[in-house]
């Protein structure tokens, strides 16, 4: 079966002020109604990867020649912008971290949802309003018909994020890219939004690319996890598998660095050093200066993604036994 979305050899760079690579040869696939988590820290390239899929990269960013983003057999990278615009919203929708900045402050919430509905086809205004109320109800906004007339500032952060999700659903997309959708929200509200995404996946068969820095969010909600570090995917595995036997030393370090309720210890295992930013990536494996198990080869030669066991892949000379 062909996947819904297949990203191959995606590389993204910037020319100014000096040429730097921000995303380096990233490949992955998403099936229908699958939730994939793309996990990484600041500057790892996860957000750019998400923006590149619907073609929303900032104008200074350059996608390199071999990059492919194939949705249902059609390559979006080579597609004319007009055709790509028809795909945005209708096939691929996005939700961002800051629902405050994503809603127009001088437009009523309902009008913004109605506008999104009518952007995807001629719908009479009255019917669009009914559908907007239904969408708000679907994303868990109580008293939806009345809330259509609310202004964005009258809603809490969690409510705004629900409205953003309703707007994303307006075009009946197959894939929702959610970039840190809960990072700006409180813990108890985070749980609500994650549950909502899970419900939409089951009810609508929606595929979700969940971009986050928080492995904890991933644990309960994703089918598969992709771990990014310094522009590359360094580990890919079914979620349970990843948490059971993390293969890459970075993933192991991340998991050890997260405090756990079941094993409270006075000291956490920390990863030494700090996250390298684009343009300052070391040669070889980019994690090797911080890696506790690095060998000589790691400093000179970059490992590629190799199967570790079954569907579990990782890019590490030591973990895949290619170091000797």
């Amino acid at each position: 079966m062909t996947p819904l979305l297949e990203v191959t050899n995606l590389s993204i760079g910037f020319a100014n002020p000096e040429p730097i690579t921000a995303v380096d040869d990233v490949s992955f696939r998403i099936d229908r109604s699958e939730v994939i988590a793309l996990v990484g820290e600041s500057g790892c390239g996860k957000t750019l990867t998400g923006l590149a899929i619907p073609g929303l990269l900032p104008s200074e960013a350059r996608t390199s020649a071999g990059s492919r983003v194939v949705l249902d057999g059609n390559d979006l990278v080579g597609m004319p912008e007009a055709a790509r615009r028809r795909i945005r919203g209708a096939r691929i929708a996005m939700v961002f971290q800051d629902p405050q900045a994503s809603l127009n402050p001088v437009m009523r919430v309902g009008d913004q949802v109605i506008e999104a509905i009518r952007a995807h086809g001629p719908v009479p205004r009255a019917e669009a309003r009914t559908r907007a109320a239904a969408l708000l109800e679907e994303v868990g906004i109580a008293d939806a018909a009345a809330r259509l007339d609310a202004w964005p500032h009258e809603l809490s952060g969690g409510m705004r994020q629900r409205v953003m999700i309703a707007i994303a659903l307006a075009g009946e997309p197959d894939l929702l890219i959610a970039d840190e959708p809960t990072t700006a929200l409180d813990v108890t509200i985070q749980a609500q939004i994650l549950e909502l995404l899970d419900r939409l996946r089951r009810a609508r068969g929606l595929a979700v690319l969940l971009i986050t820095h928080d492995l904890g969010i991933v644990a309960s909600r994703a089918d598969r996890v992709l771990v990014m570090y310094a522009g590359r995917i360094i580990e890919s595995a079914p979620t349970a598998e990843l948490f059971r036997v993390p293969r890459h030393p970075y993933t192991r370090g991340l998991l050890a660095a997260v405090p756990r309720v079941d094993a409270p210890e006075s000291r956490l295992e920390a990863i030494a050093g700090s996250v390298p930013q684009p343009g300052r990536w070391p040669p070889g494996c980019r994690f090797h200066p911080r890696c506790p198990v690095a060998i000589a080869r790691c400093g000179t030669e970059a490992p590629s993604m190799e199967p570790a066991e079954g569907p579990h892949h990782t890019a590490c000379w030591v973990a895949t036994g290619a170091g000797s």
Binding site: S156, G158, M159, D186, V187, T188, I189, Q190, A191, Q192, E195, D214, L215, G216, I217, A219, S220, T239, A240, F243, L255, V258, R260, V261, D262
Partner: peptide, 25 residues
């Protein structure tokens, strides 16, 4: 209890015991 249940748990099976509170503060 709701806060404790929201602590990320590495075991996905246990994480589903999460209590999702209704409404907001």
């Amino acid at each position: 209890r709701a806060l404790v249940s929201a602590i990320p748990h590495p075991d996905p099976a246990r994480a589903s015991e999460r209590i999702v509170l209704a409404g907001e503060q």
